[in-house]
Amino acid sequence: MDKSMLGDLGTLPPEDQARMSTMIDQLQIRDSLRMYNTLVERCFTDCVDTFRRKTLDKQEETCVKRCAEKFLKHSMRVGMRFAELNQGAATQDE
């Protein structure tokens, strides 16, 4: 989540700006914790399929690492494209 996504806070009185800013921070924390959970679930689901041992083997570990890295790169790319589209939409609004 990009803070710029969330609109302009400059028009609010200072105490409300502080509260709004706290709210945004909290949403960002929640969002990144959720992202972490989702990433773990997805990479586990895609990479781990045998349960004959209770530790990850080398192949599973490599798969999880690549999956996580790919997901993070993907997520950053989506964020950039999304910001561009938001920008475009905001410009049209004016």
Partner: peptide, 22 residues
Amino acid sequence: NSCIDRCVSKYWQVTNLVGQLL
């Protein structure tokens, strides 16, 4: 039952592994 035990254990490891990467 043994699948569940191993699954929890492996899920835990994946959680740690991803945590390190992040």
